[in-house]
Design a binder for these strands. Structure first.
Ligand code: MN
Ligand code: MN
Ligand code: ZN
Ligand code: ZN
Lengths: 137, 137
DNA sequence: ATTCTAGTTTATAATTATTCTAAACTAGTA
DNA sequence: TACTAGTTTAGAATAATTATAAACTAGAAT
């Protein structure tokens, strides 16, 4: 559970002004017991529920991009046409079900990589993602 | 090196009529020493080089989808807005450089998975992909 | 060989996700 | 309180892909 102050600090520490919109979005993303996966579309729905002050879709996209750059969320690999994001920024992996388009976390320790290749020269590894696609048995 | 007959058989065996367009596209994709990665856009450029009979972009998309369904090509996971495909259908992995948007093959044996999780019940594993994103050192 | 038809190709429109634009607004400092 | 750089916003623009429906054709039947 984040306090409003914590959220404001989080924003400030990444050089993002704590605007009304960013604070609300940050609450929806980070003030949860569990991490989760989302798209711009699903976040927009959650943020713009009836009653709440409206936040434009452009701001949803801007904020998601800003939070991603700041490392508060990460993008997940899928073959879907829309971008999927994760509030879990720790290294972990995913099941992906192309039928339901749902992602499920795989705990980091559930995948053990015994050997990985050296990156090409001049490059280092930014991230390693394992995606296991599923199908009906 | 595929002969035209082999290509026609490949098409026939997947219930695809060997049309002029599909044969030409199949040649560009499969009649190569090395496998490679492509997008609808790059394939369209290769197929519609000056002189050659023109194939519509709709047919490029239709054919890529048909070849994918038939298992002759596979889609690769990336965070790019366009779809990437691979003429290498054997299980293998990729480096992805977000700067250049280039994919590089990682030989299957260069990644050793010591442990992978059980799929959720009712589901089986269709595919396991490892994508290693790169950044400047 | 000719006819027939389901499958295929095509130009073009439509759709979808995302990014751009530039005017209005606001957080934070002076 | 006034200022200004950063932010939000509605709406337009873009980019990739998919849908539409008319014209074409592979291949089977005659
Ligand atoms: Mn994606
Ligand atoms: Mn992709
Ligand atoms: Zn996750
Ligand atoms: Zn490959």
């Amino acid at each position: 559970m984040h306090q409003k102050k914590e959220i404001i600090n989080k924003l400030r520490s990444s050089n993002l002004r704590p605007t009304k919109q960013r604070i609300l979005i940050a609450k929806k993303l980070f003030d949860k017991k569990e991490t989760f996966h989302f798209t711009a579309e699903t976040l927009n729905k959650v943020v713009n529920r009836k009653g709440q002050t409206k936040i434009s879709l452009a701001t949803i996209y801007n904020t998601v991009e800003a939070f991603k750059k700041a490392g508060h969320i990460r993008e997940i690999l899928t073959n879907n046409s829309k971008s999927y994001y994760d509030t879990n920024i720790k290294s972990h992996h995913h099941f992906y079900d192309p039928e339901t388009k749902k992602l499920t976390d795989i705990d980091y320790q559930e995948v053990i990589l015994k050997k990985i290749p050296n990156p090409p020269k001049g490059k280092k590894i930014k991230d390693l993602e394992v995606v296991i696609s599923l199908q009906k048995k």
